[in-house]
Nucleic acid binder design. Structure first.
Lengths: 330, 330
DNA sequence: CTGAAAGCGCTTACAG
DNA sequence: CTGAAAGCGCTTACAG
């Protein structure tokens, strides 16, 4: 900075002001400083600047899984909204392992990010609460109550109901659900499914999966191994749904000929022509935009009101993986 | 730190040593310090620590596109290798926009990361050279010559030849290539295709695409609009190939009945049961692991030898999107 | 292991 | 706009 000041023939204080984009610098001096900096290849050390100012202008985004495009969509929403602000996004992932996610979150805290956004995180509520006490935190695709963090998610109960209703309207009565009960933040999909099934006078049939394609395939095999093979399957996310379809097809069954499948997320994958999966859109980008708005409200403001909860309304997108039930000849 | 020292009844210097995992601290004192830190909720400020030590123990990874799973695979390779080192990964993306990628890279530099890894970046060579002068840099899936940066990539000429040979072996003679000539780092695939076609006495037929599904669809339409419709298409990446298949299928053609398709990358997408795309595996994870090794060699060492280049050998994976040519009745 | 000092590269606040 | 001072929270190097 000293060097730049000397080259531009101004004071070090002025260089600092220019670097911080202060409005109280004359255009001429600003120009001179910028030119000198460029010539010397000078770039402000953000480490030092952040240490002194207590602001990093950085928000840390934890993406649950880089292989699942639905999280990329949430990222896009965040990015759209933060583009015209001074905040920069830094992302990390724990590759769906809770311990490594926790580690990534602590790295964000150690780096003193201005805010943290959790996208599909699988860490326990207690940890999220602790994080919320240290830095503005918003969790997406999941809700955390009784903690100083904002939640923004889709109304999954409504989404699951929409999926069941869609299949019911097509005449399906034997509707299985692939859920991941052990996975945090996915209870609502299961609840919505079970509740709606009972309301319709149908028996819920839940098979365990996880958040991967392999889990979907395993769930499909578990279904086939029983004597009761459903005519339709509602999977708790698209990746799982695709795993179900793969396994079913490999077993000689036709989708949607023999079974109809509904996914959840409406990610890029569901939209692939060859996949064409009917799916509940969880409004991923909007989730990201809303999260960004919450971040902007919190960052740099004194702790305002208590934790907030935003729920978006899901929308079912019908594609070719579902069709009216055909009577089984057996 | 002072507080922790007081609570543990040791000196501030000792706390610093413990935080840096120094071996010259007795187990008892170490325990006491760790306990005190935990109790006070103390975490070392990495901003301050990095500023003083000139090391951030952080490598910045620029991923070209979070929606393309092939980059996630490279990330996985990096992560595998860096897991047991003190280095932490921070990722950023420019969403395939060169200007935004450049911005993300500068953010890494401003943060003083120990190294930068570029995965599929679309910024110009000149910028990469400038980055390499400031920090150890390795670029993957692309090579940069005449610059102080390491390159690790697949032998794309060989990969393209393998794709052409595969189709040729199946009897195809009319083989189109969807390329993205404007896109940096993809010349070799085009060159390999064109060279091999000529060697086989065939006419190269190149259609322009980009790196997206939409680009593939546009390329497919461009092919259909001509009077010469090929019997096979080799697309320069999987996403493009899928776009081609989608558009072809929507136009009433069958893949592989009417046209065979080969992709490049062998990403998650190619492996989906419903997509089942024959694809050239670019060994993405191995790319990541190799990049990590190069980073580790450079970080903290005095500038050793000159820039290095690692080339991996691609492998074609045959799936159901290709089959022997069937004579056209026209 | 302690203690005291200097320094990392900035920002902040203020007098002029 | 300048100049000088204090401080951000650490690390480094050293004497004891």
């Amino acid at each position: 900075m000293e060097d730049v000041a000397r080259a531009a023939d101004v004071s070090r204080a002025l260089v600092s002001l220019v670097m911080r984009d202060s409005p109280k610098v004359s255009p001429e001096k600003r120009e001179a400083v910028i030119r000198a900096a460029e010539q010397l290849g000078y770039r402000r050390n953000r480490l030092a600047s952040s240490l002194a100012s207590h602001r990093t202008h950085t928000v840390g985004v934890l993406l649950s899984d880089l292989h699942n495009p639905v999280f990329a969509a949430v990222y896009d929403g965040l990015d759209d909204r933060l583009l015209d602000t001074p905040q920069r996004l830094l992302v990390a992932t724990g590759r769906t392992d809770p311990d490594r996610e926790a580690e990534a979150i602590w790295t964000f805290l150690d780096l003193r990010v201005d805010a943290v956004v959790l996208v599909g995180a699988s860490v326990p509520d207690a940890l999220i609460a602790k994080v919320g006490e240290r830095v503005p935190t918003v969790v997406t695709t999941r809700r955390v109550d009784d903690a100083p963090v904002d939640s923004v998610l889709t109304d999954d109960v409504a989404g699951a109901r929409a999926a069941v209703d869609h299949l019911h309207d097509l005449g399906h009565r034997d509707i299985a659900h692939v859920a991941s009960p052990s996975h945090l933040g996915h209870h609502d999909r299961l609840d919505g499914y079970a509740t709606r099934m009972r309301e319709l006078g149908l028996d819920p049939f839940v098979v365990e999966g996880d958040l991967t394609r392999a889990g979907g395939a395993r769930a499909a095999h578990a279904m086939l191994d029983r004597d009761r093979v459903p005519t339709a399957v509602f999977a708790h996310n698209d990746v799982t749904a695709i795993g179900v379809v793969d396994a079913l097809t490999a077993s000689g069954l036709d989708v949607p000929g023999d079974l109809s499948i509904v996914g959840y997320d409406n990610s890029d994958l569901a939209q692939l022509g060859q996949v064409s999966l009917t799916s509940v859109d969880m409004r991923s980008e909007e989730l990201g935009r809303t999260a960004a708005d919450l971040v902007l409200e919190r960052v740099g403001s004194p702790p305002l009101d208590g934790p907030r909860l935003h729920q978006l309304h899901p929308v079912l997108f019908e594609r070719t993986s579902t069709r009216p039930v055909t009577p089984r000849d057996r």
